[in-house]
Nucleic acid binder design. Structure first.
Lengths: 219, 219
DNA sequence: GCTACGTTCAAGTAATCTATTGAGTGATAT
DNA sequence: ATATCACTCAATAGATTACTTGAACGTAGC
């Protein structure tokens, strides 16, 4: 007998999983979660050659995780459907709960377990209504420019130390980033706490905020 | 610079995805979703050699998707935590929505698109309260014996044709299986419909039913 | 002790995956 | 046209993966 329909089906599911089975491709997906991007732009962000990035993108495309369109001489890639973000989310959750290695890396940023606890977007909305909170976007300038949370202040992590004076120490800081496991926000919160500033990270990143139907700037 | 913490983290997530990146391992996970099993028993169900199955299980273990315990001379494997089933679920969803190939396989069982639509467990409970429904477990006898839905009748798919007389044609049939994409229930529903019996498949399989906290026999 | 059984380990082969290089394609600009 | 830019394709070397075989290990029963 040839391969059963069952195995054929599972082979398809497995091929999707294999597409997620490379750190760079997960990185690519996280970046695409923020919006469309061309190949070169992605390659630069991720630190791979153009050709290599292109091939990774085509694997993701074959797996049905991204799609592309032509715009002039650019070919813009984007996530295909909302469930890709959901899939990444559950993958991260399983990792956090079941993989000791993940916990170790995350714990590396903080001394106290509690420091790691994130703030939900409901909580952020509630606290920011009272005006007691600085919402901090720690992504690079160009990503902030594309889209960001309303009222957020942009200080890329690498500039954080030199621009500490811009942060009101009387306010709480809630930092966010590209996604729930974007380490930039971990780094930022750790750095701010070391300087005695009350800081938390937002549970979600920008794409999850968008998926929740919450407002963005520019919309 | 060595690999950044970000890439290290993503490498961990990717390794989990790679563990899902093989049809046989997905099959193994689906079987383990029903309960603990020893290596040989699994190997027989899946149709792989013991050594090969053992190695697959160890990959799944390294990825934190399964765990094991010794019981006498057996080593029993089981899923690690509830989120593994959730991960499989979202993987299947992405596959169904984004991969044309998946749709093609599923469609192969039915002529009409509507025939594919599953029944939720809420619906099953409501309809079976009125006693109008035969709940049909199409898994092999031994799996039925371990645990099954309350009041379910067991006819393994391969015996379905020869035991058609046992099914009351006046009643609707709701068939279920190991999981949401276990093809046994697809085959059964297709076969029953060809014979003019009103049949649907349950949206979930046995593990999802259990995860929802619903009663089972024997409990 | 020995033997049987269930499982794991180790070695080997074939197939697949990653990243690099350099050539090729399609669209815009001059 | 021709040049340039953004991207893809093809060929390659090195690493990883899947499965087989046969040996090794741990437990249970004699």
């Amino acid at each position: 007998m040839s391969t059963s329909p069952k195995l054929k089906l599972y082979e398809e599911f497995a091929s999707i999983a294999r597409a997620l089975g490379n750190a760079h491709r997960i990185d690519i997906l996280e970046h695409l979660g923020q919006g469309e991007r061309g190949v070169d732009a992605l390659a630069a962000k991720i630190g791979l050659s153009t050709a290599n990035t292109s091939q990774h993108l085509q694997q993701l495309k074959r797996a049905g995780l991204v799609e592309s369109r032509r715009d002039g001489k650019y070919i813009l890639y984007r996530l295909k459907g909302d469930n890709v973000l959901a899939l990444l989310g559950t993958l991260f959750e399983v990792g956090e709960h079941n993989q000791a290695e993940v916990d170790k890396v995350l714990r590396g940023y903080f001394h106290e377990r509690d420091d790691m606890e994130p703030v939900s977007h409901e909580e952020l909305l509630a606290r920011s209504r009272d005006g007691l909170v600085t919402v901090l976007d720690v992504r690079p300038k160009d990503e902030f420019a594309m889209q960001h949370l309303p009222g957020a202040k942009n200080i890329p992590v690498e500039e954080l130390e030199s621009r500490l004076s811009e942060i009101d120490p009387a306010q709480e800081v809630i930092a966010y980033c590209r996604g729930p496991y974007c380490v930039l926000s971990f780094e930022a919160v750790a750095a701010l706490r070391q300087r005695g500033i009350k800081a938390w990270r937002l549970e979600d990143g920008l794409p999850e905020w968008r998926a929740a139907g919450l407002p963005l700037e520019p919309s």
